[in-house]
């Protein structure tokens, strides 16, 4: 029994140990890995991914899944850039309106997603996947396949201005992370996500309005996707349909690697932070140690499987199919 408890405690720390192990490994292979400048680079690539991963994490906590992030990010990024450019091209002027516009667009996409899932009783997997398609199509329709450039130096200062060696973007992302943590640990909504994930029947029997909660979860996810979109635009200065690309794989992998259970009810923002860092450290580290590119996909896959294997409790996974 004691050994069991010890394993249990250890398992909680596995993602962090994996992250530390990876950092040690890459540093041993190439000492340049362990430099402030490189960590800043990892921080830049992690910031948008972290927002999207936190968004989908809320949905996964409830035991649902959201696959609409690529579409939602594309729509939010494009709307953000269009609004910004239409209102003078600088967030110093009226252009700041672009930020609430993007967040609102994300929330609307999330609400539609949640309503379709809950009211029409379509599995979240299908509902969100389809909504993702619609989002991609919508952003294509808006842009006609073009790229929208953002040249506002103030907005791009998220990337270019550094404090303590790290870009402003990272501090903004950390602030959003704290907000997410507060929602998760200190609000009714956050608590209820865990309850729904831990047992939907129980949540219902405790008098919770599960349908409404699910919709709230998707809305929240949508807002975080929009944040991810804004950071992604800040990072590249380009908004286009392709801005959403790869976020599905990246975010869900990060959530799972961080130790949040896909069946719901377990995990949280800190797990997600670690997961995002693991995935991005792997991505950065493989280039830094000069691994041949035809190996990289395979190695990424292996590392992800290993991380999931180490960090999940297989006693309760009998239902995995």
């Amino acid at each position: 029994m004691n050994r069991f408890l010890a394993m249990e405690t250890l398992r909680k720390w596995v993602p962090l140990l994996v992250l530390a192990g990876l950092c040690l490994f890459f540093t041993a292979m190439n000492p340049h890995f362990l430099t402030l400048r490189n960590f800043a680079r990892i921080a830049i690539s992690s910031s948008p991914a972290l927002m999207v991963a936190i968004g989908v994490m809320f949905v996964i906590l409830m035991g649902s899944i959201d696959l609409s992030m690529e579409g939602t990010v594309a729509v939010c990024a494009v709307l953000f850039a269009l609004t910004l450019n239409a209102l003078g091209g600088s967030i110093a002027g009226r252009g700041w309106v672009a930020i609430p516009v993007a967040l609102f667009a994300g929330a609307v996409m999330g609400a539609v997603n949640g309503l379709v899932h809950v009211r029409l009783r379509i599995p979240s997997f299908m509902a969100s996947l389809s909504l993702g398609f619609i989002g991609i199509g919508l952003s294509l329709l808006i842009t006609g396949g073009d790229r929208i450039l953002i040249d506002d130096p103030l907005f791009r200062s998220l990337l270019t201005v550094r404090v303590g060696g790290f870009p402003l973007m990272m501090y903004a992302a950390l602030a959003c992370l704290l907000v997410a943590w507060f929602i998760q640990d200190h609000t009714t909504t956050g608590r209820n996500f865990y309850a729904v994930g831990g047992g939907e029947e129980l949540a219902r029997a405790s008098g919770l309005n599960v349908g409404r909660l699910r919709i709230i979860g998707f809305v929240l996810a949508g807002i975080f996707y929009a944040l991810g979109a804004i950071f992604a635009v800040a990072r590249l200065g380009i908004a286009e349909t392709e801005t959403g690309r790869n976020f599905m794989f990246m975010s869900i992998t990060s959530v799972v690697v961080g130790g949040t259970a896909l069946r719901g009810g377990e995990g949280g923002v800190w797990n997600t932070l670690i997961g995002v860092l693991i995935v991005n450290v792997i991505g950065n580290g493989m280039v830094v140690i000069g691994l041949a590119d035809y190996f990289q996909d395979g190695v990424l896959g292996l590392l992800v499987i290993t991380a999931v294997w180490l960090s999940t409790d297989r006693r309760s996974l009998s239902f995995v199919k």
Binding site: N30, H32, F33, T35, R37, N38, R41, I42, I44, S45, A232, R235, L236, I238, E242, T243, R245, N246, G283, N284, G285, M286, V287, V288, I289, G290, D293, Y294
Partner: peptide
Amino acid sequence: LAVQAADWDTQKANQVMSGFLTR
């Protein structure tokens, strides 16, 4: 110095270039 595939992708190229800068 290095040849690396970035799959025609802007974001991937961004990440690869960051890695190159470290290396």
